[in-house]
């Protein structure tokens, strides 16, 4: 299974970025091979709106089936759901911690957005 985690760093020990739309990048982790790659959360920075939507499209491109982040707004949620990507919110501080929590079954899949997004 491929898991995307929002982060500002480059390795498993890096901090988890709690923002979804405006996270600098995603660490894309393959739970079978234990390997990972990085995906920049490339945004059209001049776009007047829609950070969450763009980020969700970026995640979908990685082939991830799971996203772990701090908060996810309603629009990003809609995009991820329609791409059949499950969303898990966590308070974990590092990427590694988030992955462990997921693998131990300690994270609960979000059934709706937990924040109202608006250019945040």
């Amino acid at each position: 299974m491929i898991i995307a985690i929002t982060t500002s760093g480059n390795e498993l020990s890096a901090p988890l970025d709690r923002r979804f739309g405006r996270a600098p990048k995603f660490l894309v982790y393959n739970s079978e091979t234990k390997e990972f790659s990085l995906k920049d959360n490339t945004q059209n920075l001049n776009a007047p709106q829609g950070a969450g939507i763009q980020a969700a499209q970026n995640v979908a491109e990685t082939g991830a089936k799971v996203v772990i982040t701090g908060h996810c707004g309603p629009k990003a949620f809609r995009v991820l759901s329609s791409a059949n990507i499950a969303i898990y919110n966590t308070e974990a501080t590092t990427v590694q911690e988030a992955i462990s929590l997921l693998e131990e079954g300690k994270l609960v899949e979000a059934v709706q957005a937990d924040v109202e997004g608006h250019w945040v």
């Binding site: 776009a47 709106q49 829609g50 939507i53 499209q57 629009k75 809609r78 995009v79 329609s82």
Partner: peptide, 19 residues
């Protein structure tokens, strides 16, 4: 769309009316 109000995902276009 310049406003990210319509995107293509899951095999079809998807609209965000508020955008």
């Amino acid at each position: 769309c310049q406003f990210n109000a319509i995107i293509t995902m899951g095999g079809a276009a998807m609209v965000f009316p508020e955008m």
